[in-house]
Design a protein around this nucleic acid. Structure first.
Lengths: 343, 343
DNA sequence: ATAAAAATTTTACGCGCGCAAAAAACTCAG
DNA sequence: CTGAGTTTTTTGCGCGCGTAAAATTTTTAT
């Protein structure tokens, strides 16, 4: 490596023997220049280690090579996991991911979108907070920046929504619980932030009706994103009051279930499917920690791979088509039932 | 809001009645212009909603207002939590955080640092992978960019290291376990990626010796960052072989402990402090999930707040002092013992 | 009130690169 | 070998802003 610092493209153009605009083309797409030019450039690149100035590039380019990823709550390993997956795909496509978490706060979500505007990203993958999101802000953002929503849908916003089919999740868990024991009651937060929670409750009610059982929803108090604690508190309360109508509980999501299991443990309620058990508990999401609960949690798993693959693919199609799709796309992936010890 | 789109500072300068460079000063620091100018600018700002082009700004500025945050594994809620804390403080200081996770991969860590170079950040807060990190890359990066290490130290790299005092963690848990029952054995990964793990083992050995007890280290196989699974597998193996020398286990970290508890559950080993319990388990980190395990985990908590506050503060001192500190700073915060049901 | 000092604003230039249009080089049929 | 067609390279210009130095205004001291 030659110690000479190369300051800019002009200098590097001279060193490599091609013109500066040719270099510019090369850095945009190495295949867009003649092989002989490319060879000279790459040879010089080995000697001089030059990298074009990111800011100068992005200032003049129509589209930057940045893709924003926004999730509602990164401390939730579910989102961390899906963000990782998406990040990877964006890098492979030759783009730069920029990851943001709203940390459960609508004002931060707005700030992030605001900051993202000045980043002029090629596109954005957005998992909105949901109910708490400032709809008008999201709508206006989606008008200006090619955006694909994932995980949590907001009707009509963004060019597409890629997520999971909540009905599939609930139908599978309900069906399994029914055929392997008594029908479940449904354990949820009273005011869920996430629209998926509402869809799951409705799916539960419908499925129970279809199967001819009396549905029973237990809605516990609590706001915010500390689902485990909400599940635990609600669980302690329900268990103490012996308010469970059946010995089978279906939680709206795994984080709630983790808290509920904690409450069971604290209340010496034995969870599982053995003859000496008091309660069966199942849930949805296949949260990364759900297999380490005690007992391990029976749950319905997202197809992480499919969702992130499709979301990223859709975004790039959107970008290539110039930011507009013929019509808003909605793709829902079904769940995969995962049987563990809890139900 | 006037619908007129303001394209650039020149145009906005005319609209607000001050010169463009004055605007430039204002956007860098609103207090650096005369109050009369500031008033005119802010009045125009209310009418026209103009924002300077981020890329044009950063191209010419010596220092950008970007601060990089790099963590080894964001799907670990511990890092997600500390990243959130740090992010917040950076925003409050008027900077833009850029968050990256190495996802446990040394090659990605290198790529991230590489990409960070072209971002020309004002500074970087780096929690390195540790043993697996490509030392030469990190060293060269720290030479070029003002960097403060946190969580996991690499001797001599970066201008400072802010972390937790592993000896304090281990001493507190060991002392507590000893005075409340039999002395603990130490459960850990054989080849820990994180340097803290080694420090904890050494601290355990020393403390046990000081107290006059025979130390006993159980090192289980496994590589990577799936600590829970490693703890579970190792736990199952140890429990099956009845290889535990005592009824008290001190895990190197909470994620390992979560896996170990899962193994106990699977093996019908009762964990806790009651008379009907077989085993006591304690650990370190106060992982966000550790209070929801079954039973809840007794652990030593990081001082998240102190670590992140000090790390951010140190970084800004470093930036203001022009990127060099008189000497490398090392700050270690002690742990806070948290007693729960597991020990 | 007035000159000197300090703070602020303006002038003038350059940063590093993208891109449109013009020029050149290459391809290939006849 | 020639010329039309195609690709690639070059010329020339501008993006939006930072910043040093010059010009101006404001403040302070006398």
């Amino acid at each position: 490596m030659n110690p000479t610092k190369v300051r800019n493209m002009d200098e590097f153009a001279r060193l490599s023997g091609v013109s500066r605009p040719t270099l510019s083309k090369y850095f945009n797409d190495p295949n867009s220049v003649r092989p002989s030019s490319r060879a000279r450039i790459e040879q010089a690149l080995e000697q001089y280690d030059f990298r074009p100035n990111l800011y100068a590039m992005n200032q003049n380019r129509r589209l930057t090579k940045t893709v924003g990823i926004v999730v509602p709550y990164l401390a939730d390993p579910f989102f961390a996991e899906i963000a990782r997956n998406i990040e990877q795909r964006i890098i492979e496509a030759g783009y730069r991911p920029a990851l943001y978490s709203a940390h459960g706060r609508p004002d931060l979500e707005v700030d992030i979108l605001d900051g993202l505007r000045s980043l002029k990203p090629a596109g954005v993958l957005l998992a909105p907070l949901g109910r708490a999101s400032v709809k008008s802000e999201i709508e206006s953002f989606c008008r200006d920046v090619p955006t694909v929503l994932f995980d949590s849908n907001i009707e009509g916003m963004g060019a597409a929504f890629i997520g999971s089919d909540n009905a599939s999740f609930v139908n599978q868990t309900v069906d399994y619980l029914v055929r392997s024991g008594s029908p479940p009651c449904f354990f949820e937060m009273k005011n869920p932030a996430n629209p998926n929670a509402n869809k799951r409750r409705l799916a539960y009610l419908r499925r129970m009706e279809e199967l001819g059982f009396q549905p029973h929803v237990i809605s516990v108090d609590g706001t915010g994103w500390a689902f485990e604690e909400i599940g635990r508190k609600g669980g302690l309360d329900v268990l103490e009051r012996k308010a469970l109508p059946t010995n089978t509980v279906l939680c709206s999501n795994d984080r709630l279930a983790i808290g509920f299991l904690s409450a069971c443990c604290e209340s010496s309620v034995r969870v599982g499917i053995g003859p000496d058990c008091d309660l069966r508990v199942a849930s949805h999401d296949d949260h990364p920690f759900s297999r380490f609960t005690c007992p391990p949690l029976t749950t319905a798993a997202h197809d992480y791979e499919a969702v992130s693959e499709r979301a990223v693919r859709t975004l790039f199609e959107l970008i290539e088509s110039g930011g507009k799709l013929d019509e808003r796309l909605e793709v829902l992936y079904p769940a995969r039932l995962i049987l563990r010890g809890s139900a």
